[in-house]
Amino acid sequence: MSTARPRPFYTGYGRLTPLWFLAPAVLVLLVIGIYPTLFAVVTSLRRYNLTRSRDGFPFVGFANYQQVLGDPTFWETLGRTAKFFLCVMPFEVALGLGVALLLHQPGFRGLRALARVSLVVPLATTYAVVGLLGRLIFNRDFGIANSLIGLFGVPSFDWLGNSAGAFAAICVMDVWQWTPFCALIFLSGLSMVPVEIEEAARLETASKTALLRHVQLPYLLPGLTAMLILRSADVLKLFDVVFTMTRGGPGAATELISVYIQRVGFRVFDLGTASAQALLLLVITIILARVYIRFFYREIE
């Protein structure tokens, strides 16, 4: 980077300065990312089935898109994915915020450090293993979930054997795995609140809610936006956990959109349709992201 050379008498910055800082990242993303994405776009316009490669891959215009838009399963799985997102996200945000506040509060240094590091553990557990762990935990006979609810007098429940239970079980595993993500992001937001401001505010008011609303919230909103966007994108891509835990079943109870796309793309190998599905999802994600940014993202100044 040419800006690396010290320029002793230089004060402002030139028009090209941002470019030098941005160029490496932009170039790398372009070089690695552009071809596969273009390929996917072109594929979505073709009949492209890998297990019929002898028939060639002719262009079919928007036929794949038409088919996807008219496919009830696509909409069903998309709706189910939305439901899943709406079930897990409030928990993850609320619990995440609570955890972050607990960890931010002074006192109990050792315990706080311990809890903070433990947050990394759910995130670090390989998703496919989380799914299997889920199968072990929610098993009707030898699962620990039933023993635990048994302590509270709730009768044994066949989690994975019925639609509602299986859906609840994948939600629980997701909340377990991703609440820490939210907590860590909130925590780094809290740590950005200038100390003087926070301390002054603490002296002024004893109310934690007031502190949160007026002082800390502005620093949390960017993180919240990040969370919503990243989690939306991730939920739309969520695959490993569900696949190893329920394989989308029983019935179609846990068939989320990505499980469906995987089935079209890598079981049926109809990559034309799968690409069209994925690109439609991309559009949905971008719209969602724009909406979040519009509503939540304000610069702290």
């Binding site: 297990t51 019929r52 019925n162 639609s163 989308g248 079943g249 029983p250 019935g251 179609a252 068939e255 089935r263 079981r267 049926v268 190998f269």
Partner: peptide, 22 residues
């Protein structure tokens, strides 16, 4: 036949829906 993987997915979905009584 080559269509089995696609057919199998459908059988699996509705086969388990039958068992659930859906």
């Amino acid at each position: 036949f080559p269509a089995w993987p696609a057919v199998s997915e459908i059988v699996a979905e509705f086969g388990s829906k039958m068992m659930l009584g859906e």
